[in-house]
Amino acid sequence: MIESADEFVRLRTSEDPAEYRRAANEPAAEAIWREVIDRFPQMRFWVAQNKTVPLSILEVLRRDPDERVRSMVRAKRSWARAHPQDSSRLGDPE
């Protein structure tokens, strides 16, 4: 489990493939994801890419100003299951 925002950034920017995979696959508490979003805006795409990120965090990232982040959210299966009406995978409704 990822224990802090700083740990997530360290894992994500590591050159060690095992650490990089941890950033993509390990869960973190919702408060940690929120801290990453607030303190490290350049990491929002990578938060959205994490396979365990909760829907509540995806809800925040779906409104991100960066199209890459919004697109990553729309590409997640968990998002599509929760928001089938968000058929904007080919474009952004907002």
Rank of each mutant, 00 (worst) to 15 (best):
R70Q: 15
A80W: 04
R62N: 13
R74V: 14
D64G: 11
R63D: 11
S71Q: 10
D64F: 09
A75V: 03
A75E: 11
W79V: 10
P54T: 04
V53W: 02
R77F: 05
V60W: 00
Q85A: 15
R74N: 13
P54K: 01
R81M: 14
R77L: 12
R70W: 07
E59W: 00
A82S: 14
P54A: 02
D66K: 13
A75C: 08
S78G: 08
L61W: 04
Q85T: 14
P54V: 01
Q85H: 15
S78C: 11
P84T: 10
W79G: 06
E67W: 12
L58G: 07
A82D: 11
I57L: 00
R70E: 09
V60H: 00
A75T: 04
R63F: 06
P84W: 07
M72W: 03
R68E: 11
R62F: 09
L58Y: 01
A82F: 07
L55M: 08
R81S: 12
S56F: 00
A80S: 14
L55F: 02
V73R: 02
A82K: 06
I57M: 00
A80H: 06
R77V: 06
A80D: 10
V73K: 03
P84N: 12
V53D: 00
V53H: 03
P65R: 14
A75P: 03
P65L: 08
A75S: 15
V69M: 13
A75I: 03
R77H: 08
I57T: 00
D66A: 13
V60Q: 06
V60A: 01
V53K: 01
A82Y: 05
P65E: 13
R81A: 11
R77Y: 09
V60L: 14
D66Y: 05
L58Q: 04
P84D: 13
V53N: 01
I57R: 00
R62L: 04
E59M: 06
D66I: 08
V73C: 06
P84Q: 10
I57D: 00
T52F: 04
D66M: 07
I57N: 00
L55W: 02
A80M: 15
H83Y: 15
W79P: 05
L58M: 08
S56A: 08
R74K: 15
H83L: 06
V73W: 03
I57S: 00
V53S: 05
